[in-house]
Design a binder for these strands. Structure first.
Lengths: 163, 163
DNA sequence: CGATATTTGTTAGCATAGCTAACGAATTAT
DNA sequence: ATAATTCGTTAGCTATGCTAACAAATATCG
């Protein structure tokens, strides 16, 4: 959806602000685009032989490093019993390992194994390569525009929930 | 991730093209941002009382109009037996209806009911409002940049798989 | 026309992934 | 020391994905 010129509403301090309905429109388009994008790249995951929950948990372990089961559950927005089962499945496949914490015997630290890390990176590469293939149809200037938009989005994600 | 100036590699026809590794980098960042964005807005869905597969199928019915079970399964990238069950659940809750096709008695056309349409739109509003709330922290120029990036992304999605 | 093939959706049965409730073990607080 | 809290697991439910096998309707072909 291509939008027209900026529409501004001055506030009491004189700082121009885009009209609220435009922000909602951008939010709606962004939401819709993200859904359709992921729906498409996700299909590549079947080639890894692992389900989405396992791949997602593994990616946290690989990119953020070892952590306890509870931390991993929080990171994945999942309840502890769910993560217990996901970790058990990863362990049975040799993709992750549980290590007891010597400080606190209740805690269990989860590590990705070499095999797990390799599998995750292979899967990630499939998704990204597929997406990159589609992006190569864009002109240089379109790619620059897209890249700048992503930079803004990364700032939004970094400040999510603050203030 | 903020990228520097354009990096170009002339091809044999003289058309400048961004280096391949930059395209991969943009694809990677876009992929990652989309994952984190949806993971966050998704939490709003619990307020609707329906699961993700039902909400997703319902959104196709609401925004694309009535269609057969097979078409809906294809749109949702799901096998027919899975969609049979999702539609049965939507029907039992009064969110969708099955109508037999008078032309071809094998076909079953699925319609969203008023109640289904209302529920879907309520849920969608929750997601988008939550996202819009985060976007309001951006400056006008950042919002413009983001909007332009989304327009490019929508073009990519529109041409997906072509050529 | 009638036998066969294809298409459409369902049923059955399995695996994965989410939840809450209830619990056991370890640690911390009183 | 006892009580409260924390961390993870077990049990058991629901939801969502799949393949295989099937029934019914339609299409095709001899």
């Amino acid at each position: 959806m291509i939008r027209g010129k900026m529409e501004r509403m001055p506030d009491s301090a004189g700082t121009p602000k885009l009209a609220a309905h435009r922000v909602e429109g951008i939010a709606n388009d962004l939401h819709s685009a993200a859904i359709h994008l992921l729906r498409r790249v996700r299909k590549q995951d079947t080639k890894t032989g692992e389900g989405p929950a396992r791949l997602s948990a593994l990616s946290v372990l690989v990119f953020a490093g070892p952590m306890t089961l509870g931390e991993l559950a929080t990171a994945e927005q999942v309840r502890p019993p769910t993560m217990t089962r996901i970790v058990a499945a990863l362990e049975s496949r040799g993709l992750a390992e549980k290590v007891r914490d010597s400080e606190d015997a209740r805690r269990v630290k989860i590590h990705a194994t070499q095999k797990g890390s390799a599998l995750l990176k292979r899967g990630r590469k499939l998704r990204v390569a597929y997406l990159a293939h589609q992006l190569r149809k864009l002109s240089d200037s379109e790619l620059m525009t897209l890249g700048e938009g992503i930079s803004v989005l990364e700032r939004v994600l970094g400040n999510w929930g603050r203030s």
